[in-house]
Design a protein around this nucleic acid. Structure first.
Lengths: 220, 220
DNA sequence: ATTAAAATGTAACACTTGTTACAGATGAAA
DNA sequence: TTTCATCTGTAACAAGTGTTACATTTTAAT
């Protein structure tokens, strides 16, 4: 895999004065169609990939064949930037286009150069990686909860803290089950029971917290 | 928590010519005793902490009160360096001394300065963070396996790849159960059954893989 | 609008895991 | 060595979860 995918269109420079990138930055761009798999879990990650338009989902395929939903990403955002510098520099997840997308690719050497000459870039890079690590730690915390209702409660309370008592979840039930790492019918059963117990109200993808107290009790 | 813990002894410079650090680097040092809790989950992480001697364990306390063992760390190694740059710069875990330890503390501003003037330091920092992210991703993969025997198999196969068919685990059963995120008696039952099925052999903390095939089948 | 594919809720059942309790083994400290 | 706290394996039982199947609804493409 030494040669670059021919679909990558190379450019010698960036003319966008807003970017803050040096004029001679080497990069390339590649478009993807909806539902296309953009990167595969385990594939080499030898450059910085930035999602410049569209949105993607990342998921981890386990050895047992289960799918574990990780996150939904909207442009603009780098994809798994931390792994560019790891010893085993491979993508930890499958990345799939949720709609038509475009990816900006900056070679590792150029990233290193940017780091050196642009303190802001380095700062942003470090901060982003730090926030990713935090995200993973939070994901780990969710999975360390042993019951499905406990995981749901953890997730819903987090959503409530950010959006209030009523909010919309941008995952369907199948994806939500994958996100929680449980079987779909099991998730459906737990949600039904929580509705029946007047803890939450559900209308399609819109969730409403009715009894915060009971929800917190599910964590005990 | 603006003031620095008085137990930190400040130094104006480093005299160790080997370190590669600038002579005027500001840092401080603090000793810890065995079993002492060094950092608490959620406490502010406003500096780079490096474990210079001893060993520690990190664990995550969930809202449900469960303990999830994360990793065992031996000196020398930085502790949760990524979180220094996150928006919510807090420790994601409890850090407890497994033996007498010593921690080197470098203020964030000094770390930034090091980054700028020492490309090697920046490289190492990035690489370390990348490897940490990889570690977390692997931990996530383990937890996404739904059965206890599956998690055990994933773990043992990983150990085998690194150390061969016989190896020693440096965790007791209670800690191992916490590492797998399951109840201790449940882990004991699963291990017993795997021994009875002639998949593995166990002598105290020494594990031997007998039937690799069957072990891999547990992942399906 | 029509059609096929995918997603959803539900149910019954088997299986796995957690809980609790307790006796014996182990390990650390005096 | 003795003592005490902790760790460990085991058992019986309760509880939670996964699996499979199917009818229904929703979604997306033609």
């Amino acid at each position: 895999m030494k040669s670059i995918d021919p679909e990558w269109k190379s450019y010698g420079s960036i003319d966008d004065g807003e970017s803050g990138f040096p004029a001679d930055l080497k990069y390339s761009i590649k478009p993807y169609r909806k539902n296309e798999i953009m990167f595969r879990q385990g594939s080499i990650c030898d450059a910085l990939y930035i999602l410049t338009s569209g949105s993607v989902k990342t998921e981890m395929i386990t050895e047992t064949g289960n799918i574990m939903g990780i996150e939904l990403i909207k442009a603009p955002r780098p994809l798994a930037p931390a792994f560019l510098f790891s010893d085993n520099n491979r993508f930890p997840v499958d990345v799939t286009a949720l709609e038509d997308c475009e990816i900006l690719r900056i070679p590792k050497e150029e990233v290193m150069r940017l780091m050196a000459i642009q303190p802001d870039f380095m700062q942003q890079f470090l901060k982003h990686n730090a926030n990713r690590a935090e995200f993973l730690a939070n994901r780990l915390q969710l999975l360390s909860i042993k019951t499905i209702k406990g995981r749901i409660a953890h997730f819903l309370l987090e959503q409530m803290a950010e959006y209030g008592k009523t909010f919309t979840i941008n995952r369907n039930r199948t994806e939500l089950a994958e996100f929680f790492g449980v079987a779909r019918p099991s998730l459906a059963r737990s949600l039904s029971e929580m509705v029946e117990d007047n803890i939450i109200k559900i209308n399609k993808k819109q969730f409403t917290i009715i009894d915060e107290r009971k929800l917190k009790d599910l964590l005990l």
